[in-house]
Amino acid sequence: MALRYRMALTLFGLALTILCVVAATTAYVTLVVGFGIVFITGEGLAGLPLEALLAVAAVVTLASAAWLVARERSAPAELVAYAETVGTGSDDQQRRLDAETTAIAAQLDVERPRQHLVATDTPISLVTGYGAADAHLVVSTGLLERLGDAELRAVLAHELAHLKNRDAAVMTAASLPLVAFRRVTDLLRGRTAVRYGQTSHVKRTDALLAVGLVLVAPVWALAELLTASLSRAREFVADSAAATATGDPAALASALRAIDDDIEERPTEDFRTVASAGSLAIVSPGNRLVRPLATHPPTDERVMRLREMAAAQESNHGNA
């Protein structure tokens, strides 16, 4: 019940953020344009009733919000397109990924997502998309090389549990305005990414959302906190679902520990930082020391819970 309440609160915060961002930006632009018109036409607009102006502003705000949401639906595809620019794995690795994903998808009774095996040594797995039709599973060659079969199966079960629970859709949508703002700040700081083989540029939607978030900073802060809190809760749920599906909590605990240790030894400037991919990955490289903004629970805590599940399973088997 607490989780459902938190999810509802997060989605409300998301909707409020988008509306406030668009309303703030619309008001800013309207103010500038209005001053321009008044300067040119004198007092030609003075006769218009205030109610008419407010109605027009409300319609424009809602239309702008709908336009922003529609435009940002391409974010998962852009992330996948960027990931694939680094290259793909071997045929043997692809067959291994296909076989394990197919088996886990059948076990969890979910439609198998499109798989993308990317050639990077960093062990990465993430799932993104708004539904079964556009769900994408991104796995790195480094993950396949680092994990044994049982560990890989547990990681894939974790990712597909996100799909089954619709976490991927919720978190992809919940991070919509925040991701756009980060793309703008990354570009301004010179951290340009390569997308479709070319240097990326900020889109009009990104710029609009970034300006709006600056204008409504308190709502922005609330959205960051709510989204991070929900994300942490959903990671625990996916861990539990994966452990139950595979019957091997220890395998997932071992995989999380291996991934976390490997990421600690590697630079974080890879595609995990593009479009906030880190918040979708099984172990996030960012916000490790800022708990309220962390999108993932501490790996130590996740491992501890999984080992407790494994111990409980062994105790039940012993008593049977």
Results as ranks from 00 to 15, higher is better:
Thr120Gln: 10
Phe12Val: 13
Ser240Ala: 15
Ala75Pro: 00
Thr17Leu: 14
Ala150Gly: 09
Gly129Tyr: 06
Asp98Leu: 08
Ala106Asp: 13
Ser229Thr: 15
Gly212Cys: 09
Asp300Phe: 04
Leu3Asn: 10
Ala243Trp: 00
Leu50Phe: 12
Ser254Val: 05
Arg95Val: 15
His201Cys: 07
Ser90Met: 15
Ala46His: 05
Leu62Cys: 10
Tyr196Glu: 12
Phe236Arg: 14
Leu289Thr: 14
Glu265Asp: 13
Ala58Trp: 06
Ser140Phe: 08
Ala258Tyr: 01
Asp134Ser: 12
Ser254Pro: 00
Leu54Tyr: 08
Glu145Arg: 11
Val274Ile: 12
Gln94Met: 10
Asp186Glu: 10
Arg302Ser: 03
Leu54Cys: 06
Ala57Lys: 05
Thr299Lys: 01
Leu178Val: 09
Thr192Gln: 08
Gly44Arg: 11
Asn319Tyr: 11
Ala133Met: 09
His158Ile: 06
Val139Ile: 15
Gly318Ser: 12
Ala150Ile: 04
Ala2Asn: 12
Glu78Lys: 06
Thr244Cys: 01
Thr227Gly: 04
Ile263Arg: 02
Val237Pro: 00
Arg305Phe: 14
Ile18His: 00
Leu306Lys: 03
Glu111His: 03
Leu156His: 07
Ala243Thr: 05
Leu147Phe: 08
Leu137Ser: 05
Thr128Phe: 02
Trp220Glu: 07
Thr199Ala: 12
Ala27Phe: 10
Ala250Asn: 00
Gly47Asp: 10
Thr199Cys: 02
Val155Asn: 01
Leu53Met: 07
Thr17Gln: 12
Gly42Gln: 07
Gly247His: 08
Pro123Lys: 02
Leu97Trp: 03
Val86Asn: 03
Val211Asn: 04
Ala310Tyr: 03
Ala238Thr: 15
Trp220Val: 10
Leu213Asn: 12
Glu84Ser: 02
Leu62Asn: 05
Ala103Leu: 05
Ala103His: 02
Ala46Arg: 09
Thr122Glu: 01
Thr102Pro: 00
Gly212Asp: 02
Ser315Asn: 13
Ala258Ile: 04
Tyr28Ile: 15
Ala258Ser: 06
Glu314Met: 12
Ser231Trp: 08
Val56Gln: 07
Pro218Trp: 10
Ala242Asn: 04
Leu306Arg: 03
Leu208Phe: 13
Ala281Asn: 01
Leu31Tyr: 12
Ser240Tyr: 03
Ala133Gln: 14
Pro298Gln: 08
Asp91Lys: 03
Gly278Tyr: 07
Leu53Ala: 11
Val219Leu: 03
Glu314Pro: 04
Ala103Ser: 06
His162Tyr: 11
Glu308Leu: 13
Asp262Gly: 02
Ala251Asp: 02
Lys203Phe: 08
Leu156Ala: 07
Pro218Arg: 09
Thr85Trp: 04
Val33Glu: 04
His296Ala: 14
Leu48Asn: 04
Glu145Thr: 14
Gly129Pro: 02
Leu144Cys: 04
Thr244Asp: 13
Cys20Arg: 01
Leu143Asn: 04
Glu159Gly: 08
Phe271Asp: 05
Ala106Leu: 10
Glu51Lys: 06
Leu152Met: 12
Thr61Leu: 04
Leu160Val: 14
Met1Asp: 14
Ser229Ile: 11
Arg71Lys: 05
Leu62Trp: 12
Leu53Arg: 12
Ala15Phe: 11
Val214Phe: 05
Val303Phe: 02
Arg302Thr: 08
Val110Lys: 06
Gln198Gly: 03
Gly34Thr: 13
Phe271Cys: 03
